[in-house]
Amino acid sequence: MKIAVIADIHGNVVALDAVLADLEKRGGADLIVNLGDCVAGPLWPRETFERLEKLGLPTVRGNHDRRVAEKVSDEMWPSDRFAHEQLTPQQRDALAALPLQLEIASSVLAFHARPDHDERYLADAIVDGYLVRAPLVAIEKRLGQLDPAYRLLLCGHSHRPELVRLSDGRMIFNPGSVGEPAYFDDTEPAHASQQGSPHARYGMVEIDPEGAMHFEFFAITYDWESAARQAEQTGRPEWAHALRTGFMPA
């Protein structure tokens, strides 16, 4: 079984289309799983939603999917507000209705951040204002009483491509972000996530008949300049910098 894994598109339909085209060139997959945060961002939220709606992928709810669907308030983050205003009420309701977690196969569980929470990091820690890999003991504690029958855990949220083997052999796989290669979160403790290049990221897992898992990460060149210009036109120069470089502004 070949499972293509995408996450954190954040309204970047240009990057999404490049990923889908690259996947097709590689022969496709038995299943494409979307790990959420589909549309939030100053790019093309409605176009991205419509593209994903046509694809009909198994999809879990990201924290920004939930936030986009909420009532507008002074506390709403600008990227969520922009997407909220671009979507129809029906589209926002569809995002809110996405499941927190989804069983992809008998041994595969998909979720956005953690199995029980859409906004808390699983495999990451904040050190000196940046995301880094968390200690193994912390990662395993965060999984709590999750059924160990799930041997493969698919997650996104951090935008950092990651592969972690737990002490009992279970695997955590984060493909990185399709459409937002870096971000800054001012929630205390404030921190940045940086993929280090502007490429669109996705991943592939192949599970052989004996149950062995093989992983690949992909970084795809696409027209990130057009995405950066779109961010500039919507008044988000920091997004434009991240889209062009994979880093947040210094």
Rank of each mutant, 00 (worst) to 15 (best):
H214I: 12
L146E: 05
F173Q: 12
L166D: 00
F173W: 08
L146W: 00
N174I: 04
L146G: 08
P189N: 12
F217S: 10
D124Y: 08
S197H: 13
Y183R: 05
S158C: 03
G169N: 03
P181N: 01
D185V: 08
L131W: 11
H159C: 12
L131F: 11
Y183G: 14
I207V: 15
G179P: 11
E216L: 13
E210R: 09
D118W: 09
R170I: 00
P175S: 14
Y183P: 13
A149Q: 09
S177Q: 03
G156S: 10
E162V: 04
P135C: 08
M171W: 08
D186E: 10
E119H: 13
D128Q: 12
L153H: 03
H112K: 12
R142Q: 06
E140T: 03
Q195N: 02
A113L: 14
V178C: 09
E188V: 10
H214W: 09
V108R: 04
K141H: 11
R201A: 15
A200G: 04
Y130S: 10
V127T: 13
A200Y: 08
D116Y: 04
Q194I: 12
R120A: 05
P181R: 02
A110Y: 11
A113F: 13
V132P: 01
E140F: 00
D118P: 13
G169A: 04
F111P: 00
F173H: 04
M204C: 13
Y202C: 11
A110K: 01
H159E: 04
V205E: 03
G203K: 06
P135F: 04
R120V: 11
A125D: 14
D168A: 09
D128K: 12
E162R: 10
S177W: 06
R160P: 00
G203S: 08
